[in-house]
């Protein structure tokens, strides 16, 4: 494993810890898209089916279990703190994303089997799953700082996978085309957010330094 991959995974892990911390300390689901979080449950469950028949490493197994369990826990937390009276900004028609990802998975896969199609589906769905969350962010106007840190760390994870893939291509001659293309798509989906994050958060922090 190379440094980009490790940093990417750590960033992914941290993003989920930030989210759980934010929701449990404020006891509020406000500003967080339940649709995005439910999509991640589907992403992890459909991608990590290989837990049952393929052993890669202890690290790999533990991380997969963490992502499945934590994503389910987040949905559970959001349901607990969701106030029905609150006006919802979580309005993005998420079924388009599911449908699109499924069509892409049928076209682009390494093997026309249920496991491989679900694996591909999970990559395409992950690449666009943040969109309902970005819509909530846009409609709410002002977001909690923790929410923006969460989205940033989550976006950074797939962005860091890109140098990881370049590194692996040159050292191992390995290139997972589906992962690479969906990963680039995912980073493009985030690009606008990254730019705003940089302008708002990074520059403000610098500004406050004595």
């Amino acid at each position: 494993m190379n440094i980009f991959r490790i940093l990417g995974d750590i960033s992914h892990l941290i993003s989920i810890l930030i989210l759980i911390h934010a929701v449990s300390t404020t006891k509020s689901a406000q500003g967080i898209s339940l649709k995005t979080q439910a999509a991640y449950v589907v992403v992890f469950v459909s991608r990590y089916l290989d837990l049952f028949f393929r052993y890669v490493s202890l690290y790999n197994t533990l991380m997969k279990l963490f992502f499945i369990v934590s994503s389910i826990y987040v949905v559970f937390l959001l349901n607990r703190y969701k106030k029905n009276s609150e006006k919802t900004n979580d309005i993005f028609p998420v079924w388009y994303l599911f449908g699109g990802a499924f069509v892409f998975a049928l076209i682009f896969n390494y093997e026309f089997s249920i496991v491989e199609i679900l694996w591909s589906f999970s990559l395409w769905l992950e690449s666009v799953a943040i969109i309902p969350q970005l819509v909530v962010l846009q409609r709410t106007g002002e977001a909690q700082l923790l929410t923006t840190h969460y989205i940033f760390a989550l976006g950074l994870y797939r962005a860091l996978y890109i140098p990881n893939w370049i590194y692996r291509y040159y050292t191992e001659g390995r290139m997972d085309k589906i992962a690479v293309i969906s990963g680039i798509l995912q980073t493009i989906v985030y690009s606008d957010f990254f730019y705003i994050y940089y302008k708002k958060v990074v520059k403000n922090l610098k500004f406050k330094l004595p």
Partner: peptide, 10 residues
Amino acid sequence: ESEADAHDEL
């Protein structure tokens, strides 16, 4: 090893 067998990333 086919590409499908090589899923070793998260």
